[in-house]
């Protein structure tokens, strides 16, 4: 063990030694995998802190409106562009609207869109990548053709086409907000799975030839078991990174979409939207941009560390 680099900040050598012995063989069945995972997760201090931060943000956006009762669209020209104060802890924008209230209300959508779109992108990406990486020949070629096709599609006309084709029918089925939400998540997720798929496939190509996979295969493990238990956990690193980057991208992409008329109506202050609105006032009202910017940054940061913690927790080979 000595000289080996610690992959985790909080590993204490004694426990690690112990765990190494336990980890050399697969954990006994008596020992609940979920509890084991949670134990491993807790070891990752930053992940635990991040979980706390994300919970606070989630709590704020869900219950915030009941505590901070200012209306999000209360236009008050007397209070234009006021810096943070007791009345407006995050200041006001150019229409005198309270930025804190807007961020709380918009945060629900931003977080939900970010997470949901990430899940869609990662799920589709892992599914396609794993299938392609395990199969050879036509299926692999076909799936990678699909990925290439999606990579090549010019997004703007495609988005306009999607709005044109699906907006009204989705709106009538799921209501205006639900329909837009589904559309946005589908669009962002649907246009971002390709890197995940390519990464997973590349990892699979390499991993499936590794000794431990050979060994498992020789022991008669089924294909599914090979993928789920042996290869996938080892391919998760890039997937988690891609996942966190996707959350950030999705939050920002949502605001871009609203400029195409695809996003939520312009009066819904999602984080990306507030950040965009603030940009022309960056020199006189830096706080206007600071708060949404920090919100996105904090959310992405904590999701990333939670991802790191999850990987440690789910990776049985990890010494802890």
């Amino acid at each position: 063990m000595a000289g080996s680099t610690l992959a985790s900040p909080s590993v204490d050598p004694a426990a690690a030694d112990e765990a190494a012995r336990a980890g050399a063989v697969r954990p006994a069945a008596a020992f609940s995998p979920a509890r084991d995972a949670w134990r491993r997760f807790r070891r990752h201090r930053l992940a635990v802190v991040s979980l706390g931060v994300l919970s606070i943000i989630a709590f704020a956006v869900v219950f915030g409106p009941f505590i901070w009762r200012l209306a999000i669209n209360d236009i008050d020209f007397a209070a234009q562009l006021k810096p943070p104060s007791l009345a407006h802890p995050f200041g006001t924008d150019d229409l005198g609207q309270d930025i804190l209230a807007r961020l709380i209300s918009g945060g629900r959508i931003s977080l939900a869109v970010g997470l949901a779109a990430m899940v869609v992108a990662v799920l589709v990406g892992v599914l396609v990548g794993a299938t392609a990486g395990m199969s050879r020949g036509h299926i692999d070629a076909g799936l990678m053709w699909l990925a290439d096709l999606f990579l090549s599609l010019p997004q703007l006309p495609l988005l306009l086409l999607v709005i044109y084709l699906f907006r009204d029918s989705l709106k009538s089925i799921f209501g205006p907000e639900g329909g837009v939400f589904i559309l946005i998540v589908a669009v962002i997720g649907g246009l971002r799975w390709m890197p995940v798929a390519r990464l997973v496939r590349a990892q699979f190509l390499s991993l499936r030839e590794k000794e431990f996979v050979e060994a498992a295969r020789a022991l008669g493990a089924s294909r599914l078991r090979l993928v789920v238990h042996h290869i996938l956990p080892n391919a998760l690193g890039p997937v988690i990174v891609a996942g966190t980057i996707d959350v950030a991208n999705a939050i920002i992409a949502e605001s871009t979409l609203s400029f195409l008329g695809l996003g939520f109506p312009p009066d819904i202050p999602t984080w990306g939207r507030v950040l965009f609105d603030a940009k022309d006032y960056l020199d006189v009202a830096p706080y206007w941009a600071l708060f949404p910017g920090s919100a996105i940054f904090l959310a992405v940061l904590s999701i990333n560390f939670i991802g790191d913690g999850l990987r440690d927790a789910l990776d049985p080979r990890r010494v802890m």
Binding site: N73, D74, I75, D94, L95, P266, D267
Partner: peptide
């Protein structure tokens, strides 16, 4: 912004 003022 005009829309927002009218809406309110």
């Amino acid at each position: 912004k005009t829309q927002a003022i009218f809406k309110q």
